[in-house]
Amino acid sequence: MTQPLTAGVSLKPQHYADALACRAEGLWFEAHPENYMAAGGPRLAWLDAIARDKPISLHGVGLSLAADEAPDEDHLAALKRLVDRYQPALVSEHLAWSMRRGVYAPDLLPFPRTQAALARIADNVDRMQEVLGRRVLIENPSLYLPLEGHDLGEVAFLAALSRRTGCGLLVDVNNVFVSAHNLGFSAEAYLDALPAEAVGEIHLAGHAPDANADLLIDTHGAPVAEAVWRLYGRLIARIGQRPTLIERDDDIPAFQDLMAERERAHALLTRETVDA
């Protein structure tokens, strides 16, 4: 793939045929590897076909890097098989946990960002990169819980993790916006403090207000909010073009609707390239 990645979209089974047929410049697709950990069948066949002429990103949600234990070796081996099969342009995971003593909580759970946690998670990211034989990107999750006991802010923690392991960062601008609202910090200051050279991918997604409390929920079930587009413009004006995903996991619209949002990011990215 010599064409640079501009804006991509989440790959959903109901969009397989549209994704395969689409010829948009710079387009790429991101898939959750957990949805392709099968022995065979139509899912893998579709991804085979799409990966033949489009760049693919594998965005893991279940490796549980922020657990207080090593990542599950079976899961890592399954991820390795997919990385070998699809040769993805990007591979990413989250600064969060979801496995504990062999039980999976389907969510991205928080933790106190202590020095001990940094050492543990750096070991886990090292293990992931060792098994996959490549650099990975680590994403900031949405936060909902004001925790005591942090030694480091999230940006400082991610920057230190990147320095220790060589991993890159996946900056989810919507998650920054949601966390900033929920925990009461400045999204602008957060984005301005990120180490530009470490950022390898950006996510944009929609959110919604919680029904019961003054919280924003990272639903991935709505178009990207205007406030998030503004933060995105601010980020790429500072750090330059990065592959940017329109992420959608719930209330999936027609492929064309997702692509319309994607075109907006693509336009911003290609304009940024010309200016730079």
Partner: peptide, 21 residues
């Protein structure tokens, strides 16, 4: 690590998301 109404509200989000998943 956390207590009070903000803790309850945040935990409810994780509770709901995990159940929905």
């Amino acid at each position: 690590w956390c207590a009070g109404p903000a803790a309850s509200a945040g935990l409810a989000v994780y509770r709901n998301t995990t159940a929905k998943g």
